[in-house]
Protein backbone atom coordinates (compact mmCIF):
# COMPACT_ATOMS: atom_id res chain seq x y z
CA UNK A 1 0.00 0.00 0.00
CA UNK A 2 2.69 2.47 0.98
CA UNK A 3 5.70 2.70 -1.27
CA UNK A 4 8.46 4.71 0.24
CA UNK A 5 11.80 4.60 -1.50
CA UNK A 6 13.45 7.96 -1.03
CA UNK A 7 16.74 7.81 -2.94
CA UNK A 8 19.67 8.54 -0.69
CA UNK A 9 21.21 11.19 -2.87
CA UNK A 10 18.45 13.07 -4.55
CA UNK A 11 17.83 16.68 -5.33
CA UNK A 12 15.02 18.37 -3.47
CA UNK A 13 12.88 18.50 -6.57
CA UNK A 14 13.25 14.77 -7.01
CA UNK A 15 12.12 14.23 -3.46
CA UNK A 16 9.13 16.46 -4.05
CA UNK A 17 8.42 14.47 -7.17
CA UNK A 18 8.59 11.18 -5.34
CA UNK A 19 6.33 12.53 -2.59
CA UNK A 20 3.65 13.44 -5.04
CA UNK A 21 4.03 10.38 -7.18
CA UNK A 22 2.58 8.19 -4.44
CA UNK A 23 -0.91 9.45 -5.02
CA UNK A 24 -3.06 10.78 -7.73
CA UNK A 25 -2.07 14.45 -7.61
CA UNK A 26 -5.46 15.61 -8.82
CA UNK A 27 -7.35 13.66 -6.15
CA UNK A 28 -9.89 15.79 -4.23
CA UNK A 29 -7.99 15.00 -1.05
CA UNK A 30 -4.62 13.35 -0.82
CA UNK A 31 -3.03 12.84 2.55
CA UNK A 32 0.65 12.02 2.60
CA UNK A 33 2.46 10.48 5.54
CA UNK A 34 0.48 12.46 8.11
CA UNK A 35 1.07 12.07 11.84
CA UNK A 36 -0.84 14.03 14.47
CA UNK A 37 -0.07 14.20 18.17
CA UNK A 38 -1.83 15.84 21.10
CA UNK A 39 0.85 16.97 23.48
CA UNK A 40 3.24 14.05 23.11
CA UNK A 41 0.70 11.31 22.59
CA UNK A 42 0.34 10.32 18.96
CA UNK A 43 -3.26 10.22 17.80
CA UNK A 44 -2.81 9.48 14.13
CA UNK A 45 0.06 7.61 12.56
CA UNK A 46 1.38 7.51 9.04
CA UNK A 47 -1.86 8.35 7.30
CA UNK A 48 -1.58 7.91 3.55
CA UNK A 49 -4.77 8.23 1.64
CA UNK A 50 -6.11 9.56 -1.62
CA UNK A 51 -9.85 10.11 -1.76
CA UNK A 52 -11.44 9.06 -5.06
CA UNK A 53 -13.39 11.83 -6.77
CA UNK A 54 -17.17 11.95 -6.77
CA UNK A 55 -17.66 9.23 -4.16
CA UNK A 56 -19.32 8.95 -0.77
CA UNK A 57 -16.58 7.90 1.62
CA UNK A 58 -17.25 6.70 5.14
CA UNK A 59 -14.65 6.92 7.90
CA UNK A 60 -15.27 4.19 10.46
CA UNK A 61 -13.43 3.23 13.61
CA UNK A 62 -13.76 2.82 17.38
CA UNK A 63 -13.92 5.68 19.87
CA UNK A 64 -10.61 7.47 20.14
CA UNK A 65 -9.52 6.19 16.75
CA UNK A 66 -8.86 9.76 15.62
CA UNK A 67 -11.71 10.10 13.14
CA UNK A 68 -12.52 13.72 14.00
CA UNK A 69 -8.83 14.50 14.35
CA UNK A 70 -8.24 13.20 10.83
CA UNK A 71 -10.75 15.71 9.47
CA UNK A 72 -9.46 18.57 11.61
CA UNK A 73 -5.84 17.86 10.65
CA UNK A 74 -6.83 17.95 6.98
CA UNK A 75 -8.48 21.35 7.50
CA UNK A 76 -5.49 22.80 9.41
CA UNK A 77 -7.61 23.01 12.58
CA UNK A 78 -5.14 20.91 14.56
CA UNK A 79 -1.43 21.02 13.79
CA UNK A 80 0.18 18.09 11.99
CA UNK A 81 3.37 16.69 13.46
CA UNK A 82 4.41 15.62 10.00
CA UNK A 83 3.10 15.02 6.52
CA UNK A 84 1.05 17.06 4.12
CA UNK A 85 -2.49 17.27 2.82
CA UNK A 86 -3.35 18.44 -0.69
CA UNK A 87 -6.69 19.28 -2.19
CA UNK A 88 -6.72 18.90 -5.98
CA UNK A 89 -2.96 19.15 -5.74
CA UNK A 90 -2.90 22.37 -3.71
CA UNK A 91 -2.55 23.12 -0.01
CA UNK A 92 -5.68 23.91 1.97
CA UNK A 93 -5.13 27.66 2.08
CA UNK A 94 -5.46 27.86 -1.72
CA UNK A 95 -8.54 25.67 -1.88
CA UNK A 96 -10.66 26.96 1.01
CA UNK A 97 -13.70 27.65 -1.14
CA UNK A 98 -13.69 24.14 -2.59
CA UNK A 99 -14.02 22.56 0.83
CA UNK A 100 -17.08 22.44 3.04
CA UNK A 101 -17.08 21.35 6.68
CA UNK A 102 -19.88 20.07 8.91
CA UNK A 103 -18.59 19.89 12.49
CA UNK A 104 -20.19 17.79 15.21
CA UNK A 105 -23.44 19.24 16.41
CA UNK A 106 -22.21 19.46 20.02
CA UNK A 107 -19.27 21.63 19.02
CA UNK A 108 -21.28 24.86 19.20
CA UNK A 109 -23.48 26.62 21.75
CA UNK A 110 -27.03 26.42 20.40
CA UNK A 111 -28.21 29.16 22.80
CA UNK A 112 -26.32 31.65 20.65
CA UNK A 113 -28.66 34.47 19.58
CA UNK A 114 -29.02 33.50 15.93
CA UNK A 115 -31.76 32.18 13.67
CA UNK A 116 -31.45 29.12 11.45
CA UNK A 117 -31.01 31.45 8.48
CA UNK A 118 -28.23 33.34 10.29
CA UNK A 119 -26.33 30.11 10.87
CA UNK A 120 -26.69 28.96 7.27
CA UNK A 121 -25.60 32.37 6.03
CA UNK A 122 -22.34 31.89 7.97
CA UNK A 123 -21.41 29.36 5.28
CA UNK A 124 -21.02 32.32 2.90
CA UNK A 125 -18.80 34.44 5.16
CA UNK A 126 -15.65 33.05 3.54
CA UNK A 127 -16.76 34.52 0.21
CA UNK A 128 -17.59 37.96 1.54
CA UNK A 129 -14.61 40.33 1.93
CA UNK A 130 -13.57 41.39 5.43
CA UNK A 131 -15.59 44.20 7.02
CA UNK A 132 -18.29 43.90 4.33
CA UNK A 133 -21.75 43.07 5.68
CA UNK A 134 -23.71 40.04 4.48
CA UNK A 135 -25.19 40.69 1.05
CA UNK A 136 -28.76 40.10 -0.02
CA UNK A 137 -27.79 37.43 -2.55
CA UNK A 138 -25.93 35.48 0.15
CA UNK A 139 -29.04 35.48 2.30
CA UNK A 140 -31.12 34.34 -0.69
CA UNK A 141 -28.69 31.48 -1.32
CA UNK A 142 -28.85 30.49 2.33
CA UNK A 143 -32.65 30.43 2.23
CA UNK A 144 -32.53 28.28 -0.88
CA UNK A 145 -30.26 25.77 0.88
CA UNK A 146 -32.60 25.71 3.89
CA UNK A 147 -35.37 24.81 1.44
CA UNK A 148 -33.24 21.98 0.06
CA UNK A 149 -33.02 20.36 3.49
CA UNK A 150 -36.73 20.98 4.15
CA UNK A 151 -36.17 23.66 6.77
CA UNK A 152 -37.44 26.79 5.00
CA UNK A 153 -40.34 27.09 7.46
CA UNK A 154 -37.90 27.36 10.34
CA UNK A 155 -35.64 30.04 8.83
CA UNK A 156 -36.43 32.69 11.44
CA UNK A 157 -36.53 30.37 14.42
CA UNK A 158 -33.86 30.70 17.10
CA UNK A 159 -31.58 27.69 16.83
CA UNK A 160 -32.05 26.35 20.37
CA UNK A 161 -35.75 25.92 19.60
CA UNK A 162 -34.97 23.36 16.89
CA UNK A 163 -34.84 19.61 17.47
CA UNK A 164 -31.55 17.76 17.17
CA UNK A 165 -32.38 16.55 13.67
CA UNK A 166 -33.39 20.04 12.60
CA UNK A 167 -30.14 21.46 13.97
CA UNK A 168 -28.22 18.88 11.96
CA UNK A 169 -30.12 19.89 8.84
CA UNK A 170 -29.22 23.52 9.48
CA UNK A 171 -25.56 22.48 9.61
CA UNK A 172 -25.95 20.59 6.35
CA UNK A 173 -27.60 23.58 4.70
CA UNK A 174 -24.69 25.67 5.91
CA UNK A 175 -22.30 23.27 4.18
CA UNK A 176 -24.38 23.29 0.99
CA UNK A 177 -24.30 27.07 0.82
CA UNK A 178 -20.50 26.88 0.74
CA UNK A 179 -20.88 25.39 -2.77
CA UNK A 180 -17.79 23.28 -2.25
CA UNK A 181 -16.39 20.36 -4.24
CA UNK A 182 -15.32 18.33 -1.21
CA UNK A 183 -17.33 17.97 1.99
CA UNK A 184 -16.05 16.80 5.35
CA UNK A 185 -18.84 15.79 7.74
CA UNK A 186 -18.24 14.81 11.34
CA UNK A 187 -20.93 12.39 12.55
CA UNK A 188 -23.88 13.98 10.74
CA UNK A 189 -26.06 10.98 11.61
CA UNK A 190 -25.41 11.13 15.37
CA UNK A 191 -28.58 11.57 17.40
CA UNK A 192 -30.94 12.45 14.55
CA UNK A 193 -34.45 11.14 13.93
CA UNK A 194 -35.24 8.66 11.16
CA UNK A 195 -36.68 11.35 8.88
CA UNK A 196 -33.53 13.45 9.13
CA UNK A 197 -31.35 10.39 8.54
CA UNK A 198 -33.23 9.72 5.31
CA UNK A 199 -33.00 13.38 4.32
CA UNK A 200 -29.24 13.33 4.86
CA UNK A 201 -28.82 10.17 2.79
CA UNK A 202 -30.82 11.65 -0.07
CA UNK A 203 -28.74 14.80 0.16
CA UNK A 204 -25.46 12.84 0.08
CA UNK A 205 -26.59 11.00 -3.06
CA UNK A 206 -27.63 14.28 -4.63
CA UNK A 207 -24.17 15.68 -3.92
CA UNK A 208 -22.64 12.59 -5.49
CA UNK A 209 -24.62 13.00 -8.70
CA UNK A 210 -23.24 16.54 -8.84
CA UNK A 211 -19.76 15.00 -8.82
CA UNK A 212 -18.87 16.13 -5.30
CA UNK A 213 -16.78 14.12 -2.88
CA UNK A 214 -18.10 13.58 0.64
CA UNK A 215 -15.96 12.26 3.47
CA UNK A 216 -18.22 11.34 6.36
CA UNK A 217 -17.32 10.15 9.86
CA UNK A 218 -19.86 7.46 10.64
CA UNK A 219 -20.50 5.38 13.73
CA UNK A 220 -23.27 3.00 12.71
CA UNK A 221 -21.58 -0.02 11.12
CA UNK A 222 -24.94 -1.49 10.02
CA UNK A 223 -25.63 1.24 7.50
CA UNK A 224 -22.10 1.62 6.10
CA UNK A 225 -22.58 -0.69 3.07
CA UNK A 226 -25.86 1.01 2.24
CA UNK A 227 -24.66 4.60 2.51
CA UNK A 228 -21.05 4.62 1.33
CA UNK A 229 -19.19 3.66 -1.87
CA UNK A 230 -15.80 3.78 -0.23
CA UNK A 231 -14.77 3.21 3.32
CA UNK A 232 -11.74 4.05 5.44
CA UNK A 233 -11.26 1.84 8.49
CA UNK A 234 -9.35 3.88 11.00
CA UNK A 235 -7.77 3.11 14.31
CA UNK A 236 -4.90 5.55 14.77
CA UNK A 237 -3.66 4.15 11.49
CA UNK A 238 -5.57 3.38 8.34
CA UNK A 239 -6.29 -0.31 8.79
CA UNK A 240 -7.87 -0.65 5.37
CA UNK A 241 -9.37 1.58 2.72
CA UNK A 242 -11.07 1.07 -0.60
CA UNK A 243 -14.43 0.26 -2.18
CA UNK A 244 -16.90 -0.77 0.51
CA UNK A 245 -17.70 -4.13 -1.08
CA UNK A 246 -14.06 -5.25 -0.89
CA UNK A 247 -12.88 -3.39 2.20
CA UNK A 248 -15.78 -3.61 4.62
CA UNK A 249 -15.05 -7.22 5.55
CA UNK A 250 -15.41 -8.84 8.94
CA UNK A 251 -11.67 -9.52 8.97
CA UNK A 252 -10.83 -5.86 8.45
CA UNK A 253 -13.43 -4.81 10.99
CA UNK A 254 -11.92 -7.19 13.49
CA UNK A 255 -8.52 -5.67 12.85
CA UNK A 256 -10.00 -2.21 13.38
CA UNK A 257 -12.15 -2.77 16.43
CA UNK A 258 -10.89 -6.03 17.89
CA UNK A 259 -7.25 -6.95 18.33
CA UNK A 260 -5.98 -3.65 19.52
CA UNK A 261 -2.66 -5.10 20.59
CA UNK A 262 -1.09 -5.36 17.20
CA UNK A 263 2.61 -4.81 16.91
CA UNK A 264 2.19 -1.21 15.78
CA UNK A 265 -0.03 -0.39 18.72
CA UNK A 266 2.61 -1.74 21.04
CA UNK A 267 5.16 0.43 19.29
CA UNK A 268 2.87 3.42 19.61
CA UNK A 269 2.36 2.95 23.32
CA UNK A 270 6.09 2.49 23.80
CA UNK A 271 6.74 5.79 22.03
CA UNK A 272 4.05 7.45 24.11
CA UNK A 273 5.70 6.20 27.28
CA UNK A 274 9.06 7.53 26.10
CA UNK A 275 7.39 10.86 25.48
CA UNK A 276 6.01 11.19 29.00
CA UNK A 277 9.14 9.96 30.81
Amino acid sequence: MIVRTPPKKASSSAIAGSLQAEHDVAAPVSIHDMTVAYHRRPVLWDIDYAAPAGQLIGIVGPNGAGKSTLIKACLDLVPRASGSVRFFGNPYKKQRRQIGYVPQRESVDWDFPASALDVVTMGRYGRIPWCVPVRRKDRAKALHCLEQVGMADYATRQISKLSGGQQQRVFLARALVQEAQVYFMDEPFAGVDAATEQAIVILLRELKTQGKTCIVVHHDLQTVPEYFDHVVLLNMRIVASGPTAETFTSENLHRTYGGRLTLLDKAASAVARLGTD
Partner: peptide
Amino acid sequence: ALLYKELKISSFDPELATTQGI
Protein backbone atom coordinates in the same frame (compact mmCIF):
# COMPACT_ATOMS: atom_id res chain seq x y z
CA ALA B 1 -19.65 47.47 13.31
CA LEU B 2 -16.88 46.70 10.82
CA LEU B 3 -16.11 43.20 12.09
CA TYR B 4 -19.72 42.31 12.87
CA LYS B 5 -19.88 39.12 10.82
CA GLU B 6 -16.31 38.10 11.67
CA LEU B 7 -16.99 38.45 15.40
CA LYS B 8 -20.31 36.66 15.03
CA ILE B 9 -18.98 33.57 13.27
CA SER B 10 -15.84 33.30 15.40
CA SER B 11 -17.95 33.53 18.56
CA PHE B 12 -20.48 30.95 17.41
CA ASP B 13 -18.30 28.45 15.59
CA PRO B 14 -14.57 29.21 15.76
CA GLU B 15 -13.65 26.15 13.69
CA LEU B 16 -15.92 27.07 10.80
CA ALA B 17 -14.57 30.63 10.99
CA THR B 18 -11.01 29.36 10.76
CA THR B 19 -11.74 27.05 7.85
CA GLN B 20 -13.25 30.01 6.01
CA GLY B 21 -10.13 32.08 6.44
CA ILE B 22 -11.40 34.13 9.40
